[in-house]
């Protein structure tokens, strides 16, 4: 079955819902009473995923926006470094030679 194949493909990825859906279908095939339990697991998994998404850092913007922000920050650091270097290498207190 396609679900079984998908399960094989997505093995190891804990955020896929397909394994749980597959378990539910299996239980339904067997007319097992565990189907309610599996349904609860799916619900819990979805809720857990929602919480995980809400807690994930750095996803409040789109990747493009984030890249732009990153570029801006890099530019800021570069400019400030340059400014500091400029001030450090600036010799504005040249002692005039005694004539």
């Amino acid at each position: 079955m396609a679900v079984a194949q998908t399960k094989q493909e997505k093995e190891g990825e804990d955020c896929s819902l397909l394994p749980l859906v597959h378990d539910i279908i299996k239980c339904m095939d067997k007319d097992s009473q565990d189907v309610h339990q599996e349904l609860a697991k799916l619900k819990a998994k979805i809720q857990e995923a929602r919480e995980q998404i809400s807690a994930m850092p750095g996803i409040d913007s789109s990747p493009a926006e984030q890249q732009q922000q990153l570029a801006t920050l890099r530019e800021q650091v570069r400019t400030k470094n340059q400014l500091l270097q400029k001030y450090k290498s600036l010799c504005m207190f040249d002692v005039p030679k005694a004539s």
Partner: peptide, 23 residues
């Protein structure tokens, strides 16, 4: 993508600290 953005976010935090230090 979100995982990658999380990594970028870490890098951005480091850069922000750098900017603060420079400031």
């Amino acid at each position: 993508v979100a995982q990658q953005q999380g990594k970028v976010h870490q890098e951005m935090q480091l850069l922000e600290k750098e900017v603060e230090k420079r400031d």
